[in-house]
Amino acid sequence: MDAQAPALSPIPAVVISGFLGSGKTTLLLAVLHHMRRLGRKVAVLMNEFGDISIDGEILRGEGFSVMELSDGCICCQIGEDFVQAFTEVASRNPEMIFVEATGLADPVDLLDQATAPHLMDRVTIAKMVTVADPKNFTRLSKVLKAIVKRQTQFADVVVIGKADEATPEQVADIRRYIEAHNPHAPVYLATHGQIPGDEDFRWLLADVEPAERERRRAAMRASLEALSEDEYKAHTDFHSMSCRLLRPLVRDRFERFMQSLPPDIARAKGFVRFEGEEGLWVMMYVNGDLYIRPVALSPSPEEHLVFIGAQLDHARLANDLAACEARRRALAVL
């Protein structure tokens, strides 16, 4: 009689959430570089809000394999696709799976998707990490009250990203909020995805005691209130617009355009080239803050931009962006 093969242990998955532009991809990239140095086999599942992947292109350009789910939120719009993608990723038998959720993801729905019956024996959500943007957290916790609260409540760990840009008052505000809504979660400050003094990512890779983790999640669920109609609307009112750039841009025109975006646009990102300048540049815009830096990726992605916000005037954005080109030409709005 053949001996029965031992059952495989579920693959641990780390879910990284946090609002748009909080620094999730920066953190994920730092972790992936560390795992590569260790020779660990990992898989990445990324969900972007928009039909063109920017963060996925960055990870691929750094040599990482990424499975993507775009143009929707994994917790409500593409849930079945998420379960299928999770199943496919698990079938590759990685040592660990990293999931970067869109900034609008509700962790409650995400956990429900990740604990589908046919996934439970293959994958376990080992850790939920929420990344908080110190410059915008207090405002967002009022505008998107329910989503920010849930992302905080269900976090096993909270990381305050962009700590080098934060004031002591901003850090203190986040700590008070976390203490009120999730006093068990440790809080770390990160700069460029790295926690000072913990280059081995012990804070992330150390095991969480499963029984205690599930007890906390069950307690959170028991006290959970359903989203009101207004809260759900605030979650679903966000839309995206993608533009493929057909010519290089004039830098000063582009910077003025980006800095004059209406407040309804919470996030923009993409790849651009500038007239008279060599190479590719990555642009990141978060609630009024603009970052542009050179980037060398292989393969090199096409130049394109994604705008995310509650109200998007597609025609105006396309026209204003076309005015930034070295020579006027129609943009390909996707």
Rank of each mutant, 00 (worst) to 15 (best):
H33L: 06
E68V: 02
Q194N: 11
P117M: 04
V272Q: 03
A101I: 05
L144A: 15
A326V: 09
A132C: 14
I74Q: 04
A206V: 06
M284C: 14
I97M: 01
M96Q: 04
V187A: 01
V108D: 01
E199V: 12
H314M: 10
R217T: 14
V131H: 10
I178T: 06
A268I: 03
V89S: 02
R273T: 08
L28S: 04
E302P: 08
M128T: 11
E209D: 15
Q77R: 11
D200I: 00
P94A: 03
R36G: 03
S9A: 08
R267N: 04
T152Q: 05
D133Q: 10
D200C: 02
A222S: 15
L317V: 04
Q4D: 07
E302H: 12
Q84G: 03
D289V: 12
W203E: 01
I54P: 05
G50I: 09
E62F: 10
L249C: 06
A211H: 12
L110D: 04
D106F: 00
F49G: 01
D109W: 14
A90Y: 00
S240H: 08
Y291T: 15
T191K: 14
P248S: 11
Q311T: 13
L334G: 05
V99K: 01
H314L: 14
L224D: 13
R122F: 07
K149F: 11
D109K: 12
H33T: 09
G276T: 05
V83Q: 04
V333M: 01
E255N: 10
F238A: 12
L27G: 00
E302K: 08
R244S: 15
G61D: 05
V295G: 11
S53D: 10
G288D: 13
A318C: 11
M258T: 14
S228H: 12
P168L: 07
S70G: 10
E303T: 15
V108P: 00
W281Q: 11
V187G: 02
I292G: 12
E214K: 15
V208W: 09
P134I: 07
G197D: 08
N182Q: 06
D207R: 14
R217F: 09
L331K: 00
K149R: 15
V66W: 01
I125T: 07
A206G: 06
G193K: 00
E57W: 06
V282F: 10
I195A: 02
P183D: 08
